[in-house]
Structures are given as structure tokens and as C-alpha cells.
Design a protein around this nucleic acid. Structure first.
Lengths: 215, 215
DNA sequence: GTAAAGATACCTTCGTGTATGTATATATAG
DNA sequence: CTATATATACATACACGAAGGTATCTTTAC
């Protein structure tokens, strides 16, 4: 009813977020009603409005769940002095893809953000956060490619920013297709193979028989 | 006013579609009201409901506009007996990308379908059509890669279906990023270069020094 | 006691569906 | 060639529910 302990209140908040995750996924963000979110969470709209300002606030709180996970991947993309950069990068990315494949919550969150949300004017704050998160990811990838280039581990025909953009678009394209639900491929299979393939292909050839831009 | 001539009625229909294109883009499909669509078109909801069953009907009619354009590209992806397949493919795709870049209507339509629409249960027919259209495109690409392989124009490490999926994901990933609006790249520039680069890279090497799966 | 944590109630706004009104184009009969 | 009938192409009006915001209770921890 009311004034549970602080801990119970936090649990209510989590329950509401879980419910929002489910309802947003099923109905889409725009069509979802706060009342249904509340009912699924086993409480009323009063609780929703207590914990979150409005629907956008609820959505942004959900978005943070995903951002934390995404930035965690970003942090794991680091440079190990004694290992070649690109293969390490491939392993980190593939590990993240496998984690996504096996973590239903993560998949649901990504589905909501990419396919259950119309990024119009009222959702501007959400769009901005997505933009920044993707910007950070691309920047991180570019840093790694730059480091690889500095070490002579990147084929000369690839400029680091280009390679980062290429890889980013490739993975995102796969993700969009995969999230649609009836994909005839898996993240741990075809997608990881493609990522490894690309990073292998744009690695500097040991012997330098460089033809026209083959990559 | 009523019972205009058949031609005038058709013009009204087109005007409504144009209005829907604008309103859906601005407000998103879910939040858009049929009344606003009608007002933008300079008529009332009566006209909307006369020409289209409901909002989904209107949306599907809009979708057809894009499908026609998309399938046109599909058709242009054909096999010319006296030219290598992959370079021809690259040119067709790049031409389509440039057309998209220079055709605002096309861009608006694609933005609506990819970023202003929540594909939930009620939108199932729309989702199905998107799926089929994308399926046709992927199948067409796969056919071309298969033909290239049969002619010995595809590097052995690439299976045709894999190559088609890779290319499809790559382009779609670029498109999603580009449609978001603040892209730091262009379709005619970086994206076309990437498409050409990939198709060049997976072409069979003239001399057969095939190492580990470098592609 | 008081403030946190929600429940309940009320109001308002908006959007849709449908029903009905209406004027005109077009077909058809004579 | 008219006159009439009918289907077409909308406009208008109404009823209805859904959803959100806000204000006001209620309970309970501290």
C-alpha cells in the first residue's frame, strides 16, 4: 500500500522497469499505456508517477539499463600492449555478441530501443543519448584501429575511421536484421564469423604484396 | 462538396499520401492522427476514410510507394552475360544509393519505415511486407553471387549466401546510421566506396594465392 | 508527527469509428 | 437530348473509450 521500507520501494522501482520492458516490447513505446505497465507490475499508476516523472522518464530509465551494458562493452575494448590489437578486438566483440544472444533481457532492451520506439520530437532526449552512446562506440573502435595502424597491424588501404565506420555499420546491420526475429543466422555463428573475417582481412598482410584497394 | 471527377479523386488520394508522408515523419506513425493528415492535405477525415480503411491502410499504401522503388532496384540487379557480375552489381547498388541520397521523398519514406514505425502486433501486415521485400533483395543478391561463383568470379572462401547476407547487413547498417540525420558520411562517398571495396575484395584473385579465409 | 510511498478519484484532452448528410458526376431510360 | 436515378466523393456530427495529469486520500516507517 504505502511507505514500505526504502528497500521495498527500490524493489517496486525495479518491478516497474521490468514491467515497462515487457509492455514496451509488446505494444511499442508510443502505444503502451502507463496503466498497463502499472498493472503488470502489480501496482497502480500512482506508483509509476511517484518513481518516474512521466512516460519519457520511464523510458529513459529503461534506456540507462542498456547504456550501462553497452558502455561496459566499450570499456572492454581496450589495448593490450603484448597482443595484436585487431584479434583482441574481434574476441571482445564476439564475446559481446554471444552475451547478447544468450541474455534475453539485453535482447529485449535492444529491440525496444531499435524497433519499438519512434524517435520523434518528444523523444529528443532519448535520441540524443542513443547518438552519444553510438558515438562513443565508434570513437572507441576508431581509437583501436588507430592504435593498430600505429603498430603496423592495419593494412595501409584502410584509414582507421573508415574501418571503424565499416565495422560499426556491419554489426548494426546484422543486429537490426537479427532483432526482427526470424533471422536465418545467429550472432555467435555468421555474425561473429563476419566480424572476425573483416578484422582478419583488414589486418596488415605479413608480406607486403599490396595491390589495388582490395579491402 | 462531393463527387468530383474520377481524376480529381485520384489527386486527392495522392495529396493524402503526401500529407501522410509528412505527418508520419514528423509525429511517428503511432502518434500521428488521421485528422492532422487530413488537415495537411486540405480536407477532412471523411476523405481519409473514403480512400483508406484506417490508419494501417493508409500506412500500407505509403509503404507500397517505397516497395515499388525498392523492387525497381531489385530488378536492375541483373546479370549481363558479357560483363563480370560483381562490378556490375557494385555499379547498380551505388547508383541506387546516389538516387536515394538525392531523392528526398525516398529518404522520407525509408525513414518512416525504419525509424518512425513501431512494428508491433497491429502492424503485422506491414512487418510482413518489409520482411518479404528484404527477403527478395537478399535472394536477388544471393543469385548474383551464385552466378559470380559459377563463373569463377567469386573468391573461394566466400559462400554466395554468406556474401549476400554480409553485403545486405553492411548497407542496411549504413542506411540506419545515415537516416538518423547527423551522419558524418555520405551515401555516394563512404558507403559506395565500402560497397565497391567489399565487392572488389571478395572477387576472385586473378592469380590464385589463397591463404586462410582472408575475406 | 511527519514525510515517504502509493492508491484512488476526477477531470480533460484527444483520437477513432461510424453514421449520416449532401452535392455532384455519370449512367441510363425514355 | 433530357430527365431521373444512383453511385461516388467527400464533409459533418456524434458517441465512445483510452490515456494522461493532477489533486487528494491513506498507510506506514522512522
Amino acid at each position: 500500500m504505502a511507505r514500505r521500507t526504502k528497500q521495498e520501494a527500490d524493489e517496486t522501482r525495479v518491478t516497474l522497469l521490468d514491467a515497462a520492458e515487457q509492455v514496451f516490447l509488446e505494444r511499442g513505446v508510443a502505444r503502451a499505456s502507463l496503466d498497463e505497465v502499472a498493472r503488470v507490475a502489480g501496482c497502480t499508476r500512482g506508483a509509476v508517477h511517484w518513481h518516474f516523472r512521466d512516460k519519457l522518464g520511464l523510458f529513459l530509465a529503461l534506456d540507462e539499463r542498456l547504456l550501462l551494458l553497452q558502455d561496459a562493452v566499450c570499456c572492454r575494448l581496450d589495448i593490450c600492449p603484448d597482443r595484436p590489437v585487431l584479434p583482441a578486438m574481434a574476441e571482445t566483440l564476439c564475446a559481446a555478441l554471444e552475451e547478447l544472444e544468450n541474455n534475453p533481457r539485453r535482447r529485449r532492451l535492444l529491440t525496444i530501443m531499435l524497433q519499438r520506439c519512434e524517435y520523434v520530437a518528444e523523444m529528443a532526449p532519448a535520441l540524443e543519448r542513443r547518438r552519444e552512446a553510438d558515438g562513443r562506440m565508434r570513437a572507441r573502435l576508431a581509437e583501436l584501429f588507430t592504435a593498430a595502424a600505429a603498430r603496423g597491424e592495419l593494412a595501409a588501404c584502410w584509414r582507421p575511421e573508415r574501418a571503424a565506420l565499416f565495422l560499426f555499420a556491419l554489426v548494426n546491420g546484422f543486429l537490426h536484421e537479427w532483432l526482427r526475429g526470424d533471422a536465418d543466422f545467429t550472432l555467435s555463428g555468421e555474425v561473429c564469423a563476419s566480424v572476425r573475417g573483416f578484422l582478419g582481412a583488414c589486418a596488415a598482410a605479413p608480406a607486403g604484396a599490396e595491390g589495388p584497394p582490395r579491402c
